[in-house]
Nucleic acid binder design. Structure first.
Lengths: 239, 239
DNA sequence: GCTTGTGGAAATGTCAGACATTTAATAGAC
DNA sequence: GTCTATTAAATGTCTGACATTTCCACAAGC
């Protein structure tokens, strides 16, 4: 694939990196393909070679590319991607059509992990963690009515789950909160956000909040699992 | 803190990055401290400013530093570190005295996560996954006898757990295998590797292998938890 | 006194060009 | 044919100059 299909003129190395990363995430190149040369990218987007190298450094650090002097730049396969790199989450979030395989993989991870995390949160949550959860839940409730507030609702949804990870008070689990945003943002493009499904989702979230507040580990696990069953339906993974 | 305490003359930007990263991981600077300037680092190690910038780019991407034009380079707190970045795992692995707080955090994560992962592995493992597990286990057995083979034993240990994560056949869980190496390598410096503890460890690992081979989800979960109880003792987290 | 603005110092960020190094392909000698 | 130079092409590195951002000090004006 060539660069011609990409929109011209991103401003700055960061936006160039995002543009190229999203093209890679969208599958515009096959694993093993040779990526365009620095000078070609530089000319195509009318930016300096420096900017290109900075952008490609990010993509390489994220496991998207493999660069070697002399050979060139090769595209790596999905299994090599650093899905837990915060930059990757950022790039995935802005992508309208995320690879269904990725959406399913992230969902499967969350389905197996979040009950455990919610259980830990029930054991370790402090007052401020409860407050974060309550605040996020209140935001979800208040933005549940109107259709035009679905983006706002998704943000509160992300905040709720991120607060759960943070409440586990574990540095590693907390890092994984980055994955939530692309996963939840995918909901916007795949679900109808009908009123009854939103009510159902709210009810299940409320039970997670209650379980954590009551320090009830097993209830938190069960409730988190129920939230994710709802998510699976909204993502179209199960009907 | 200054650079004077660091050994001179690393060769190449990668080694410079490792050196600086390990100094940061070891807590030689406090969060919020200003990190040495590019030119000072450049002069101290007698490398070009380019090399320094490349190294600092890595550390920044890993969440260790925060750089701003005009202000300088600031040291970030542990909660901001990208513990799941493969580079971080590499840097941590070579560190003799990893921060006990980190060791405990990673252990707590593994204790909550690995049973789930082992359960998934019991469900999803293919023939080649079983082979990898068996091969790693055989290596653990053969290197269990001698004291001087403890490094080799640790490598097989890492391979065993990594094979478990891979056997889950989930792209996200698989990425987390990177964390295993620093966690398991910490065992070398903290346990005596006595013969009876090694035998006990082997027995528990064998049960994980058997459970996965038998596709027995709940047994795999239980067995993985038992392995980690043994690990906790060896890490000195519990007695 | 307080605010505001203005200048300079100091740090990181960027650029451009030349050069180094690595890799792969190619042509030639035997 | 096989092995070996040679060459081309790509990324990596160096250097010096310059741009930009931030902070601080100091002074002007209300």
């Amino acid at each position: 694939m060539t660069l011609d299909a990409l929109p011209p003129h991103p401003g700055g190395a960061e936006q160039l990196a995002r543009l190229l990363a999203q093209a890679l995430l969208a599958g515009h190149w096959q694993p093993g393909d040779v990526f365009p040369r620095e000078l070609d990218i530089s000319k195509h987007f009318a930016v300096s070679r420096n900017q290109v190298r900075n952008a490609l450094t990010s993509l390489t650090a994220a496991g998207l590319l493999d660069r070697t002097a002399g050979r060139g730049t090769l595209v790596r396969e999905m299994g090599d991607w650093h899905l837990l790199d915060p930059l990757m989450s950022e790039w995935m979030t802005g992508l309208v059509n995320l690879d269904p395989q990725l959406v399913r993989a992230i969902y499967a991870f969350r389905f197996s992990a979040e009950p455990v995390v919610a259980g830990l949160a029930a054991q370790a949550a402090q007052a401020e963690d409860i407050e974060r959860l309550e605040s996020a839940f209140a935001g979800m409730e208040s933005s549940a009515g109107s259709v035009e507030a679905r983006a706002e609702h998704a943000e509160y949804d992300v905040a709720f789950h991120d607060a759960t990870y943070r409440a586990s008070h574990n540095l590693v689990w907390r890092q994984m909160g980055h994955l939530l945003r692309p996963s939840i943002m995918a909901l916007i493009h795949r679900s109808q956000h009908r009123t009854d499904t939103l009510d159902d989702s709210l009810t299940r979230h409320r039970q997670v909040l209650e379980a954590i507040r009551n320090r009830d580990t097993s209830s938190a696990e069960i409730a988190a699992r129920e939230v994710l069953r709802r998510t699976a339906i909204d993502l179209g993974i199960v009907s």
